[in-house]
Computed example of a mutant assay.
Amino acid sequence: MSFDGSFSPPASLRRLLNRCPALLSDPTLSSLHQNCNSCSELVLDDLVEALADPFLHPEYTIPIVGCFRPVCERIASRATDKLRAAESLNSDNDTSIEDEIGEDTRVLDFYLRRGRGLSGSVPST
């Protein structure tokens, strides 16, 4: 998957979680991390799905890209699909996402649970 063929999803997940230990609070990522320690293979589709929400969080976007560069396009695509599926993405509130979301890794769920949208919008295809 990478230029030299050395991409390893379990190793990349361990690297990300070492870099961003707060992501261990996400039950899906924590479960994948525990399972990848006991086996050599990690289902890449499950990992892409689990990383799509934290990818939207400003604190985690760059670390995810750095650790998962070979599959970054898939992660971004899945995150975009989730944004498109949300009912409302517009917000009139000027409060930045960093001010409100804190450590919550599920950005989209965080705002939708509160009946709020995200600032900006996603272009339709």
Rank of each mutant, 00 (worst) to 15 (best):
1 M>Y: 12
1 M>D: 12
1 M>V: 10
3 F>V: 01
3 F>A: 11
3 F>G: 08
4 D>F: 04
5 G>R: 13
5 G>W: 02
6 S>Q: 13
6 S>F: 03
6 S>A: 13
7 F>A: 03
7 F>N: 05
8 S>Q: 11
8 S>L: 12
9 P>I: 05
11 A>L: 14
12 S>M: 04
12 S>P: 01
13 L>E: 06
13 L>D: 06
14 R>G: 01
15 R>Y: 00
15 R>E: 06
15 R>F: 00
17 L>T: 04
17 L>A: 00
17 L>V: 00
17 L>M: 06
19 R>I: 00
20 C>V: 14
20 C>R: 15
22 A>M: 04
23 L>V: 03
23 L>R: 03
24 L>A: 08
26 D>H: 07
28 T>Y: 10
28 T>P: 02
28 T>Q: 15
29 L>E: 10
30 S>K: 14
30 S>N: 15
32 L>Q: 12
32 L>Y: 13
32 L>T: 07
33 H>T: 04
34 Q>D: 14
34 Q>L: 13
35 N>T: 10
38 S>E: 12
39 C>H: 13
40 S>Q: 15
40 S>Y: 08
41 E>F: 11
41 E>W: 08
42 L>K: 09
42 L>R: 07
44 L>F: 03
45 D>Q: 11
47 L>F: 02
48 V>Y: 00
48 V>C: 01
49 E>T: 12
50 A>E: 06
51 L>I: 10
51 L>K: 09
51 L>R: 11
51 L>V: 09
54 P>T: 06
55 F>Y: 15
55 F>P: 00
56 L>Q: 15
58 P>V: 04
58 P>F: 14
61 T>P: 01
62 I>Y: 14
63 P>R: 07
65 V>Q: 14
65 V>D: 08
68 F>T: 05
69 R>L: 15
69 R>I: 04
69 R>D: 14
70 P>D: 05
73 E>L: 14
73 E>H: 09
74 R>Y: 05
76 A>D: 00
77 S>M: 03
77 S>D: 03
78 R>L: 01
79 A>F: 10
80 T>Y: 13
81 D>L: 09
82 K>T: 00
83 L>N: 01
84 R>D: 02
84 R>F: 05
84 R>N: 07
85 A>N: 12
85 A>Q: 15
86 A>Y: 04
87 E>R: 06
88 S>P: 02
90 N>L: 10
90 N>Y: 11
92 D>A: 02
93 N>H: 03
94 D>I: 08
94 D>L: 13
94 D>F: 11
95 T>M: 11
95 T>S: 11
96 S>I: 13
96 S>K: 13
101 I>F: 03
101 I>T: 07
101 I>C: 08
102 G>R: 01
102 G>C: 02
102 G>A: 06
102 G>L: 07
105 T>G: 14
105 T>A: 15
106 R>C: 04
106 R>M: 02
107 V>A: 13
108 L>R: 04
110 F>K: 06
111 Y>W: 10
111 Y>C: 04
111 Y>Q: 01
112 L>E: 15
112 L>V: 11
113 R>F: 02
113 R>A: 07
113 R>W: 01
113 R>K: 14
114 R>A: 03
116 R>H: 07
117 G>F: 01
117 G>P: 02
118 L>N: 04
118 L>V: 07
119 S>A: 12
119 S>F: 07
120 G>Q: 10
121 S>L: 08
122 V>Y: 01
123 P>V: 03
123 P>T: 01
124 S>C: 01
